[in-house]
């Protein structure tokens, strides 16, 4: 009777299993790190809003400054969504019968607030102060992207702790002169050099804290 012998190719079984055993955990880790990072899950969130307000039209084509509507950004932690009155500064007259303006008009007449959907949700455990950043040379577009090209606002930055720390550890590349804060087209990588960044850093005495309670208050 012939004896069973494993075929020669079964010598490859153990090395293959070891290889797979080494790669699969890496694959799993990669999948979780890549797939579940805020850059995947949070960036690109573009909810539909109750009013089809287009930033591309107002901030882009009409060139309205961000601060025309978000006027609290320089003094407050919170960059307020404007009240209906701000919209009606113009829309009591401009396109007043447009169906796009109708929800705003209704809010104006009834006094009920427009229920905007918040896009940039930072966890409640973290504290962020807009005025501290805007008044020290961080431009709007640095974190929010080219809002003036968005018809519907989409989240541009992951707003993760690592992303915040990247800038806190090296704020230079994200700084710009104060008169360019709301200039969406200003590109620091083109317009700024290391020297100008360093001088801005000194001028504003920028020493971003990495202490936990800076943000976790």
């Amino acid at each position: 009777m012939s004896r069973f012998l494993f075929p020669k190719w079964s010598n490859l079984l153990l090395p293959t299993l070891l290889l797979v055993g080494a790669i699969m955990p890496l694959y799993a880790v990669f999948f979780v790190a890549y797939g579940f990072s805020p850059k995947t899950l949070e960036v690109g969130y573009q909810p539909q809003q109750p009013v089809k307000f287009s930033h591309a039209m107002h901030a882009g084509q009409l060139g309205l400054d961000c601060r025309y509507c978000h006027n609290t950004v320089e003094r407050s932690a919170y960059a307020a969504i404007p009240p209906t009155q701000t919209c009606m500064n113009c829309h009591t007259q401009i396109r007043k019968d447009s169906p796009l303006v109708a929800p705003v008009k209704e809010s104006y007449e009834t006094g009920k607030p427009i229920r905007w959907t918040k896009v940039h949700k930072l966890g409640d455990y973290a504290y962020f102060n807009h005025s501290a950043h805007v008044n020290r040379g961080v431009g709007c577009a640095t974190c929010h992207g080219r809002i003036d090209r968005m018809d519907v606002v989409a989240q541009f930055s992951p707003l993760s702790m690592g992303w915040c720390l990247n800038c806190h550890r090296d704020p230079g590349p994200n700084l710009r002169p104060l008169n360019q804060i709301t200039d969406m087209a200003f590109d620091p990588s083109v317009e700024m050099n290391a020297e100008r960044q360093a001088s801005l850093k000194d001028q504003f005495a920028i020493q971003p804290s990495e202490h936990c309670s800076t943000c976790h208050r």
């Binding site: 579940f36 949700k121 989409a154």
Partner: peptide
Amino acid sequence: IRSQSSPGRPVHL
């Protein structure tokens, strides 16, 4: 998924 924007609520794990 990374290259697209999406109107749905972000997956929060």
